[in-house]
């Protein structure tokens, strides 16, 4: 045990009711923000399966990709996209709090940093799209 870290068992942890996150809109949005990571991870697992099928040969890959046109998969990707966009926006906003943008002695308003990040995000997305189309 070290001197600068207290024994965890001696720390006070307030007991919260299980539904604390439903009590305020901001608490709910906090939980939504945290759960964006679940949808992103779920999408990445689907993407991994897609790449795995590619390793099984062109036939297996085409058959797998053919399923993606079904309403269920379109719905899954649409929901994953909505959560991914929410992650992007909340991440840029949170970054503006963690790393304040200073111009000289002045600290730029948070929305300036957030909007700059959104601009970079859109540019990067356009670049990836262009690379795919040119390839």
């Amino acid at each position: 045990m070290t001197r600068n870290r207290p024994d965890p068992s001696l720390l006070f942890h307030p007991r919260m009711p299980g539904n604390w996150w439903l009590r305020k809109r901001t608490y709910f949005l906090f939980i939504v923000r945290e759960f964006t990571s679940v949808f992103i991870a779920a999408y990445l697992i689907v993407f991994l399966v897609q790449l795995y099928q590619l390793g099984n040969g062109p036939g297996a890959y085409q058959a797998f990709m053919g399923q993606f046109a079904s309403p269920g998969w379109i719905g899954f990707h649409a929901v994953a996209l909505a959560f991914a966009i929410y992650h992007s926006l909340t991440w840029f906003y949170t970054t503006s709090i963690v790393i304040p943008l200073r111009i000289g002695a002045m600290v730029a308003p948070r929305y300036v940093f957030t909007l700059l990040n959104v601009a970079v995000w859109l540019a990067v997305s356009a670049a990836i799209l262009a690379i795919y189309l040119i390839w």
């Binding site: 899954f76 996209l81 991914a84 966009i85 992650h87 991440w91 990067v124």
Partner: peptide, 20 residues
Amino acid sequence: GVVAAFLIPIHIVLLGLAIP
């Protein structure tokens, strides 16, 4: 978090929606 914020949405748009 940075990788997901900047790169994931366009991949979902491309591989999950636009191509299918």
